[in-house]
Amino acid sequence: MNGPVVVGVDGSWASLAAVQTAALEAERRGTGLRLAHALAWSSARVPAGVPPWDPDGAGRRDLVGRPLDEAERWARKVAPEVTVTGDVLMGDPGRVLESESRTASLAVVAGRRATGIAGRLTGHGRCPLLVVRGRAQRHGCVVLADAASEDAAEFAFAEAAVRNVDLVVLHARARGALAGLRKKYPGVTVHDRRLRRRTGRALVEASDGAQLVVIAAHHRAAELLPGWAGRTLMSRAHCPVAVVPAGKA
């Protein structure tokens, strides 16, 4: 998909860091950056007689637009050539980003907000999700947490190729499935690494020094998040984590 990179904006420092990561991702992909500021409008803050969906009537457009203006300034610091658009959108942040993901190539959220939003996006979103955590190493590798997911593997190979770095594959139990991707991305050097245990702690340790860790979203009847090890990774990783739902690489 050639849609923009969409990022949730709320004015916090973590959000602004996510904006800069999203801007760099947009630059890398050669696409635009879309800033989405979700506003849960409260009628208690609106003067009598003013519809709650009309920020101009309440005299609050400048106020609600400030997070977007600041986010755009931060984006242009790192990617001045990227086309930036943004909107204040009514609704819960998770639902807003879910809607925006339908035309996006990547959705980006700050790590501290990831748990609830990731559940909705991995279950109902239309693109991969990047959870911004820690600090990506400029020369670090891309880590694929499980080669069993074809979509996650495709995403990881593509990221390693565009970043011009090596790919480290954990739990390489599906080596045969990777043969086609090795041919498709001949410039990517692949290293297989086996972990003694597939635990959240082991995945967190594997993220140390990496540019990116890629995991698959495993759908369950009552749970729309990656497995418990993946959730540990998203909350404690040393670098950004990409969550790739099936069919959305």
Rank of each mutant, 00 (worst) to 15 (best):
N2L: 11
G3K: 03
P4N: 07
S12K: 02
W13R: 14
S15P: 02
L16M: 11
A17T: 08
A18S: 01
Q20Y: 00
E25N: 04
R34S: 14
R34F: 15
W41Y: 15
W41F: 15
S43P: 14
P55K: 03
D56H: 11
G59Y: 03
G59E: 07
R61I: 08
R61E: 11
D62T: 12
L63N: 04
L63C: 04
V64Y: 10
G65P: 05
G65Q: 12
R66I: 09
L68E: 10
E70H: 13
E70M: 10
E72R: 15
W74M: 14
A75W: 09
A75Q: 11
R76E: 09
V78N: 10
P80C: 09
V82G: 07
V84R: 03
T85M: 07
P93A: 04
P93V: 03
L97G: 00
E98V: 11
S101I: 00
V108E: 06
A110L: 04
A114L: 07
G123F: 12
C127D: 07
C127S: 10
C127K: 08
L130N: 05
R138I: 04
H139W: 09
A145P: 01
A145I: 00
D146N: 03
A147Q: 06
A148T: 09
S149D: 06
E150K: 10
A153N: 04
A153E: 04
A153T: 06
F155W: 11
A160F: 05
A161S: 13
R163L: 14
L167M: 06
L167H: 06
H171F: 12
A172M: 08
R173D: 14
G180S: 06
G180C: 05
L181G: 06
L181C: 05
R182M: 10
K183A: 15
K183D: 13
Y185T: 01
P186D: 05
G187Q: 09
R196N: 12
R197T: 14
E205I: 05
E205Q: 12
D208A: 11
Q211N: 06
V214D: 01
V214M: 03
V214T: 03
I215G: 00
I215D: 00
A216G: 15
A216T: 05
A217V: 00
L224N: 10
L225V: 02
P226S: 08
L233R: 00
C239G: 02
P240K: 08
V243Q: 06
P245T: 04
A246I: 07
A246W: 12
G247T: 09
G247V: 08
K248N: 12
A249W: 10
A249R: 13
